[in-house]
Amino acid sequence: MIKTLDNLKQGENGIISAFKGKGEVRKHLMEMGLVRGSDIKVERVAPLGDPIEVKIKGYSLSLRKEDAKKIEIEIS
């Protein structure tokens, strides 16, 4: 099943499968360490849904909900 990162709940995890953004958006996400095939886990979601804190490659990263909508996650 494929979902966007903003639709995952706290504690859910999956594998990054694709990005909806092109060009600068995609480059920005990749510079933050978000690459296809990486395991990602939602650690915490702020009360209003923004930001979303994830764990990837052993470190924590906070993402704006707008950016999280552009990341497709494969859920097993």
Rank of each mutant, 00 (worst) to 15 (best):
L8F: 06
M30K: 13
S38E: 11
L8H: 05
E24Y: 01
D6N: 11
L63Q: 04
K57R: 13
R44D: 15
V54K: 00
G14I: 05
V25D: 06
R26M: 07
E31L: 08
D6W: 06
A46C: 03
I71Q: 02
L63G: 03
S17W: 00
G37L: 08
R36I: 15
I2R: 15
K22H: 09
I71V: 15
R44F: 14
L63R: 02
V25Q: 10
I71N: 02
K41S: 12
I75Q: 11
D50W: 07
I52Q: 03
M30P: 02
E72M: 15
I56N: 01
K27E: 11
V35S: 06
I16W: 01
N13W: 07
D50P: 03
L8C: 08
N7P: 00
T4P: 00
A18I: 01
D6C: 07
K65Q: 13
R64S: 11
Y59V: 06
E24M: 04
G21S: 15
P47Q: 11
P47V: 05
P51K: 12
S38A: 15
V54S: 02
V35C: 07
K41F: 02
L29S: 06
K20C: 05
K70S: 10
V42C: 08
S62P: 03
L29C: 09
A18G: 09
H28C: 12
E24N: 07
L61T: 04
E66Y: 06
L34I: 09
G21V: 14
E72Y: 15
E72A: 11
S38I: 07
E12V: 07
L48I: 10
V25R: 03
T4D: 10
I52D: 01
G23F: 03
G49L: 09
G21T: 14
G58Q: 13
L63H: 04
I73M: 14
G58F: 14
K9M: 07
E74K: 15
G21P: 00
L63V: 09
D39A: 15
M32T: 01
I75G: 04
I40P: 00
V35Q: 08
N7E: 13
H28L: 14
E31A: 12
V25G: 09
I52R: 03
E24I: 09
G23T: 05
G11F: 05
V54C: 04
K22P: 00
I71S: 04
S60D: 09
V45A: 07
V25F: 00
L48G: 10
V35E: 10
E66Q: 07
E74Y: 11
G58T: 11
I40D: 02
K69P: 02
K9N: 13
K55C: 02
L8Y: 04
K69G: 10
I16T: 08
Q10Y: 02
S60I: 07
P47R: 04
L8W: 05
V42R: 01
G21R: 08
D39P: 00
I75Y: 08
K65H: 15
I52C: 04
L61K: 01
E31N: 13
K22R: 15
I52L: 08
V54P: 00
T4W: 05
V42S: 04
E53S: 10
R26G: 00
M1P: 04
K57L: 03
R36E: 15
Q10L: 05
G21N: 12
R36M: 14
V35R: 13
I40L: 14
I71H: 03
L34R: 09
G58P: 04
K57W: 04
K22Y: 09
